[in-house]
Simulated scan of single mutants.
Amino acid sequence: MSRYLLSSQCVFDIIKRRNLDAELWLEAADARGLYADDICISAVTPMTIQWQLEQALAYARAHPETTEYPVPVIKEFIDQANRFFEEFARHDRIIPMDHKIASKWGDLLDMKITFQDQDGRDYDVPSATKVEIATALIGRGDFPLVYVDYHQDGHASIPNLAVENPEDIVTK
């Protein structure tokens, strides 16, 4: 049975509780025979999400008329994120960076990996995403994990990375 590592973007969509594909993927896990212990996150994911939410909160406070999500909604996202991370931590489902993951991350830092944003513009994958990918490649106990992330052509440039797109599972 495969084990899975949620990308930060998928986690972000899950904590929004807006019935986005990643949330629906997680809700459908039981029906697919996946147990909670089969689904993990990288140690960088909580920090990445918390940073994004802090940035969104600061922007919403400074520009309340132009933000997609008002301050109370972002504060609810922060609460939901904290509950999500506490649950993963309580059940040892946050994979820490060890020497093998750090070494693989170092290899990925030397690779140019390009994804596209929602507007179709290319961007270089940030270091935190490379840590997630390294975590998926090394896995836990030397058993690689399937990286749950939205489709990016750049995934194919990473040798041995198994990816599951939540959109594919939800639409089947």
Rank of each mutant, 00 (worst) to 15 (best):
S2R: 15
Y4K: 15
Y4D: 12
L6D: 10
S7T: 10
F12H: 09
F12L: 14
F12S: 15
D13T: 11
I14M: 11
I15E: 08
K16R: 15
N19W: 08
N19Q: 14
N19E: 13
L20Y: 11
A22I: 11
L24W: 02
W25T: 04
L26V: 09
A28W: 03
D30Y: 05
A31T: 13
A31D: 12
R32H: 06
L34V: 00
Y35R: 14
A43P: 00
P46F: 10
M47P: 00
L53S: 08
L53Y: 02
Q55I: 12
Q55A: 14
L57Y: 05
Y59C: 04
A62H: 09
H63E: 10
H63C: 06
P64E: 14
T67H: 01
T67V: 13
V71A: 09
I78H: 07
Q80A: 12
A81N: 11
A81C: 04
F84C: 13
F84E: 11
H91N: 14
H91S: 15
I94V: 14
M97V: 15
M97E: 10
K100I: 00
K100G: 02
K100Y: 06
A102Y: 02
S103M: 09
D107N: 05
L109F: 00
M111R: 14
I113H: 02
Q116C: 09
D119H: 08
G120A: 09
R121K: 15
D122F: 04
Y123R: 10
T129G: 10
K130L: 10
L137K: 01
L137Q: 01
L137M: 03
L137D: 01
I138P: 00
R140D: 05
R140P: 00
G141N: 13
G141S: 05
D142T: 00
F143D: 14
F143H: 12
P144I: 07
V148L: 11
V148K: 07
Y150P: 00
Q152L: 07
H155V: 13
A156G: 10
A162D: 06
A162N: 10
V163W: 00
V163T: 07
P166I: 09
P166N: 03
E167C: 08
E167F: 11
D168K: 12
I169A: 10
V170W: 02
V170T: 08
